[in-house]
Design a protein around this nucleic acid. Structure first.
Length: 636
RNA sequence: GCCGACGUGGCUCAAUUGGCAGAGCAGCUGACUUGUAAUCAGCAGGUUAUCGGUUCAACUCCGAUCGUCGGCUCCA
């Protein structure tokens, strides 16, 4: 008999030799999927051959996300089993599959050391070798609780007690180990060939900092050793790209213990920053924005009015100034842009008003959550606030989506969308929120974005938002751009405009960011490009390298010509061998090196060496200049 | 903030597990005048993150603080 685990967790037995089509016809709706473990030793290809277009039966393999989920989820059971064998007193919490592996949360006295990790890995390998079948069974609520109480698993008891009335309470068993689980799973532990425990961290029970902190063991596993090796290489690659490392090596930026959560921009890093800032400014001009700049320090009253004080005062920097007045370093720009808006009267004809601001804001991020440029306390936000009529909302959001798409394309970052809905601590009326959420949904639809995730209750307290995530070269995702619809602050600040009939109306406000923050964005592209920035962004675009100092005068005329044409060129006049100068320029990731000596001087040319390509031949200097200027203009 | 790990010249890393803090790169000085990823020689550089403790003796063990990293929580 072949046992097959289906997506709903059920297991059915079929006679060996049964065809996939026969299985499919024996199932009522054809919604089932065969999980990995059903397929061993050639059965997979046999089954595949028998699949037809009509058959709704699909095979899960490690190549698809769902198959990975099942595989890793089963691996997490193996991990839990190993833990219980070595440390019987440990209490199990939960152990799901995640993006690149799985974890198990456990309640353990004391802490895990490296030695424990090695022992755990070995025990997991042993369980795999035992080739344990993974079997499904169901229990009534009472029996389920009884079983988990007997096994001294209070967290499981809590989980069972909280399950909804109508749900089937299912378990999976492998050898002596039993775990509460909805499944599905692989059929046998034997297919989990390669396992690695990655790290140990703390995590709160049920994700709440009010609860006990458990120990979370992260691991990953693969059906082949070679896949694990590839994954480890990828992790090392990520480490090599670390922006803090590259920032220091390329002399772009550094961090200092004297100013935790803040970045020091060196001359070269600031050039990079300024190129991005220029791009930001051009982009906003062409989309009809006008730039503003507002104070960094202001009275508390402003945030009391906005509601931020109630929600975020613990995360704001504030102090008592003279006359008992509390001053705050601004944690966001919104109220300031509103003050500017309110200084003049607005006609419906003037709307939308679009203010963009490169605001330096301050947030007291908890020490444990600082992380290089990704999370800083002094943040440069590419903020903008759009005040418009309700009728204009869709068009404005569409325009923002287009701008964001154009922007991310420039950096080869793939983006995906999420809709974040009303949180529990919202301001305002539910009907208004529903409308706002509808507006955002429509805007996504209107722009052909049909695939997007939902982040339930993840909106800002004043409105729902569209969050944009970008994926980098290593497949990591980052929260960057955002579009937030706000029907609350305009009312709180008595913003208005006069409509066609002469009546005063409250505008709608859209908050949005494209970069997210300059710091985070530069951190991400530093890793994305591994420091080899495209020419338009490179702090030094060209290095001119004379063969010997006999050609310094000629080299100097070339450098001057480039600089006069706004190309960022440097002159390496040191008395070093050409190979040494090239090596250094290459390590600095300079896009172009121009080697000049006898030949070039007599023919008024340069010998061009391109980053990543090597020597690409000799060009007249004017032609090189023309080419590089075009490349810079096209942001290549 | 919570859990865990870590902190040695500017950088990358040693120091035989408690017994004289050392090397490469970078820097400086001098020589070499060079054709597509490292020329040679010499010099200098340290209160081992900080503070305290244990010990005849501490980079090493213990405690506290600061910082960093991996997570959790948070992210207007």
């Amino acid at each position: 008999m072949i046992k097959i685990t289906f997506k709903d967790g059920s297991i059915r037995e079929f006679e060996k030799g049964i065809s996939v089509l026969d299985v499919a016809t024996k199932l009522s709706e054809g919604l089932a999927r065969i999980s990995l473990g059903a397929l061993v030793n050639g059965e997979l290809s046999d089954l595949r051959k028998q699949l037809t277009e009509d058959s709704k039966l699909t095979i899960l393999t490690f190549d698809d996300d769902e198959g990975k989920d099942v595989f890793w989820h089963s691996s997490s059971h193996v991990l839990a089993q190993a833990i219980k064998r070595l440390y019987p007193n440990v209490k199990l919490a939960i152990g799901p599959a995640i993006t690149n592996g799985f974890y198990y949360d456990i309640d353990v006295e004391g802490s895990f050391t490296e030695g424990d990790i090695a022992k755990l890995e070995a025990e997991m390998q042993k369980i795999v070798k035992e080739e344990l079948n993974i079997e499904y069974f169901e229990l009534s609520r009472t029996d389920a609780i009884k079983l988990m109480e007997e096994r001294n698993e209070p967290y499981k008891v809590e989980l069972i007690s909280d399950l909804p009335e109508d749900v089937v309470i299912s378990f999976y068993k492998q050898g002596e180990f039993v775990d509460l689980c909805a499944g599905p799973h692989v059929m046998n532990t034997k297919i989990i060939k390669a396992i690695k425990i990655l790290n140990v961290a703390g995590a709160y029970w049920r994700g709440s900092e009010k609860n006990k902190m458990l120990t979370r063991i992260y691991a990953t596993s693969f059906p082949k050793k070679s896949l694990l090796d590839e994954y480890i290489v990828m992790l090392e690659e990520a480490k090599r790209r670390d922006h803090k490392k590259i920032g220091r090596e390329l002399n772009l930026f550094t961090f200092h213990p004297e100013a935790p959560g803040a970045c020091f921009w060196h001359p070269r890093g600031l050039i990079l920053w300024q190129q991005l800032e220029n791009f930001w400014r051009e982009m906003h001009k062409s989309y009809g924005y006008t730039e503003v700049q507002t104070p960094g320090l202001a009275k508390k009253i402003l945030w009391e009015t906005s509601g931020h004080w109630d929600h975020y005062q613990d995360d704001m920097y504030h102090f008592d100034a003279d006359e008992g007045e509390t001053l705050c370093l601004k944690p966001m720009d919104c109220p300031f842009d509103i003050l500017i808006y309110n200084t003049t009267q607005h006609s419906y004809k003037d709307l939308p008003v679009r203010f963009n601001e490169l605001g330096r804001i301050f947030r007291n991020e908890k020490s444990g959550q600082l992380n290089g440029l990704f999370r800083v306390r002094q943040i440069t936000q590419d903020d903008a606030h759009i005040m418009c009529t309700e009728e204009q909302v869709l068009e404005e959001i569409s325009s923002i989506i287009k701008m964001q798409q154009m922007f991310y394309k420039t950096f080869d970052l793939k983006i995906s969308y999420f809709l974040s809905t009303r949180p529990d601590d919202y301001l305002g009326e539910i009907e208004v929120w529903d409308k706002a959420e509808d507006d955002l949904r429509n805007a996504l639809k209107l722009n052909g974005i049909t695939e997007y995730g939902i982040k339930d209750k993840d909106g800002a307290f004043y409105g729902p938002k569209i969050d944009v995530q970008a994926k980098d070269a290593l497949g990591r995702t980052w929260q960057l751009a955002t579009i937030q619809l706000d029907f609350q602050l305009p009312g709180r600040f008595n913003m208005n405009y006069t409509d066609k009939s002469g009546e005063k109306k409250t505008p709608v406000m859209i908050h949005r960011a494209v970069f997210g923050s300059f710091e985070r964005f530069i951190g991400i592209i530093t890793e994305q490009f591994e420091g080899a920035f495209p020419t338009w962004l490179s702090p030094v675009q060209v290095k001119v390298l004379p063969i010997s100092d006999k050609f310094n005068d000629y080299a100097k005329t070339i450098v001057e010509k480039l600089i006069n044409n706004n190309v960022r060129a440097e002159f390496d006049a040191r008395a070093e061998k050409i190979g040494f100068k090239i090596r250094e320029a290459q390590l600095e990731k300079t896009p172009y090196m121009l080697v000049v000596g006898e030949n070039e001087q007599t023919t008024a040319t340069v010998s061009v060496r391109k980053r990543g390509e090597g020597d690409i031949g000799v060009l007249p200097i004017d032609e090189f200049l023309k080419n590089i200027l075009a490349e810079i203009k096209d942001k290549k």
